[in-house]
Design a protein around this nucleic acid. Structure first.
Length: 409
RNA sequence: CGGAGAGUAGUUCAGAUGGCUAGAACGUACGCUUUGGGAGCGUAAGGUCGCAGGUUCGAGUCCUGUCUCUCCGACCA
């Protein structure tokens, strides 16, 4: 990607009306554009980040046996009447066609996936089944806020599993919980599996995956010594209390929920009359689970966690590129050469070939937050200056060395 | 939905007590100069001052309504 041809460029001015870090930096760096409160466009570079996050999630979901589908976002009223969600869920967006028919926009997909799964679940031999998708969700929030952290439209990975027995569900539930922790770790986030209420979904305890950040909206109590963590909304403890698991002192913190897992029991299977034949010939309802990850919210939380005065600092795993080449004056031709060589080697690299001053290019590279900055300058001959975004020092290297380092990173 | 702040050039903003052709910086176009931390000089384009009413000889400025954004709250799978 050559910056001179890029549709959305970095801006010298931070946007007005953006108080939250992720909102401010993502807009200023040109990763997103706001259409209205809680609704954003992802630009070519922003979309790259989103896709990189998706890729990690897909790998882990596929690894636990999830099969990807893409369900509709536009739903008929009937499915939401079946669970009474049409009346009970106040964040459900409802709309009417010009012929007077009622529709809903998907805020989650239990009402769609359950009747869908009914088609393929006949026998215990068809279980377990896990379907997932990565899709836009719509929620009629009273107030959306904090940049891309709480949108009325947001990208979510939602998986739904169906099981023959509670034991099999418990096994899968634990596997997904581990997969989630791996996903967040790969995204550069330290997520705490937090006990929380099941909301409208279930009476049982659910787990929310919380990342500590002041930009979040949840208050949690957690233990530094072990993995105990509980949402304040159901907490029977408080900060300063002894951890019920290990006895250490509990801390209070603000956090953002980046994922959750729910034990749905047989509620939805019963609502949609999904049954299967067991080995003994009797019929039963499958046990269901649902598992969400806020993909776009993750992107926002990552910016909240990884930035400095100069701009964003993307974790390498999801950065829009591995490196950015700055073509300083007198070295434009060689910079092109380096860009072509690295691209040919499969390295994802940006080239700042704009007719900007050196200072402007340095500032843009910092703001964009690409992990490695490669300065190509007449002053260094064929040597390339390597500097990591997180480092204050740099070193000179040959094109071959740079290529090796990037390919192994 | 309650409370607070804000809507003026592509962007960020300035425009006391109402007063003539509404300004700046950045960005953009052209020319010259310049090239290691958001360069300099010159020229130019770019605005129904969110929208709709009203008061007034005269409204970006005052009044009413309305829309939108941000923050706090309520709310939140």
């Amino acid at each position: 990607m050559q910056l001179s041809k890029l549709a959305f460029q970095v801006s010298k001015n931070p946007p007005a009306n953006a108080d939250t870090i992720n909102h401010q930096l993502l807009v200023q760096a040109g990763y997103v554009r706001q259409l209205m409160a809680g609704v954003y466009t992802y630009t070519p570079l922003g979309l790259r980040v989103l896709r990189n996050i998706e890729k990690i999630i897909r790998e882990e979901m596929n690894a636990v046996g999830g099969q990807e589908v893409l369900m509709p976002a536009l739903h008929p009223k009937a499915n939401w009447l079946a669970t009474d969600g049409w009346n009970k869920i106040d964040v459900l967006f409802k709309l009417k066609s010009r012929t007077g028919k009622d529709y809903a926009l998907g805020q989650s997909h239990e009402e769609i996936v359950t009747p869908l799964a009914k088609e393929v679940i006949n026998s215990y031999k068809d279980l377990p089944l896990a379907l997932y998708q990565i899709q836009w969700k719509y929620r009629d929030e009273l107030r959306s806020k904090s940049g891309i952290l709480r949108g009325r439209e947001f990208l979510m990975k939602d998986m739904y599993s169906f099981h023959e027995t509670q034991a099999d569900f418990d096994r899968f539930y634990a596997e997904v919980k581990q997969a989630y922790l791996r996903i967040f770790q790969r995204l550069g986030l330290t997520a705490k599996a937090t006990e929380a209420s099941g909301g409208n979904f279930t009476e049982k305890v659910s787990y929310e995956f919380m990342v500590l950040t002041d930009a979040g909206e949840d208050d949690i109590f957690y233990c530094d010594a072990c993995d105990y963590c509980v949402n304040q909304e159901i907490a029977k403890v408080k900060a300063g209390d002894a951890c019920p698991k290990c006895g250490a002192t509990l801390q209070a913190a603000r956090a953002s929920e980046v994922g959750n897992v729910f034990d749905l029991g047989q509620k939805f299977a019963k609502d949609f009359d999904v049954t299967f034949t067991k080995a003994d010939g009797s019929r039963d309802y499958p046990i269901m689970g649902s598992y969400g990850i806020g993909v776009s919210r993750c992107m926002g939380v990552i910016v909240e966690k990884y930035h400095d005065e100069q701009g964003i600092i993307w974790p390498t795993s999801i950065a829009p590129a591995q490196a950015i080449i700055l073509a300083l004056n007198g070295a434009e031709a060689y910079a092109q050469e380096v860009y072509q060589a690295l691209t040919k080697q499969g390295v994802s690299v940006l080239l700042d070939d704009r007719s900007e001053s050196a200072g402007s290019k340095f500032a843009a590279a910092d703001l964009l937050g690409v992990p490695v900055r490669l300065v190509v300058s007449a002053r260094n001959g064929k040597q390339i200056e390597w500097k990591e975004r997180t480092s204050t020092t740099n070193k000179l290297a040959s094109l071959e060395e740079v290529c090796q380092w990037l390919k192994s990173s």
